[in-house]
């Protein structure tokens, strides 16, 4: 073994040299990043970007509105997950209503028809 090559100083130096080489890649990437930026400042396309973004904002707002709580006279608009439980309970406790529908073949129907 050649002890003169292996000193703590050399080891210390080698550690920092290695670390520096690794970090230099990140630094180089930082310096290269401006050239990597997308050419987003094209004025010809700017109006298109804005139109698209405006439409997207409109759609997002309209969709968000659907989920808001709103009162409309004696009705209220709530988010779906709040309405499901309430509606389900209502349906469970509701009684069948009398409609004007006549089931064909029922006594009512026969009575009506026989009267015609």
């Amino acid at each position: 073994m050649d002890p003169q090559r292996d000193t703590p100083l050399k080891r210390f130096g080698a550690f920092w040299i290695g670390l520096f080489i690794v970090v230099s890649f990140g630094v180089a990437a930082l310096f290269l990043s401006p050239s990597f930026k997308a050419d987003m400042e094209d004025p010809a396309l700017q109006s298109q970007y804005e139109a698209r973004l405006a439409i997207k904002a409109d759609v997002d707002a309209a969709q968000a509105e659907q989920f808001e709580f709103k009162k409309n006279g004696n009705k209220a608009q709530v988010a779906p997950e709040q309405a499901f439980a309430y509606t389900a309970k209502q349906l469970l406790t509701a009684q069948p209503k009398k409609t004007g529908t006549v089931v064909p073949g029922s006594p009512t129907d026969l009575k009506n028809n026989s009267g015609n």
Binding site: R5, K10, R11, G13, A14, I17, G18, V22
Partner: peptide, 16 residues
């Protein structure tokens, strides 16, 4: 970095 830097250190202080 913590795994590999020591191998580089070893290389720098290797036997000639």
């Amino acid at each position: 970095i913590l795994i590999a830097i020591w191998s580089f250190v070893q290389f720098r202080v290797r036997e000639g």
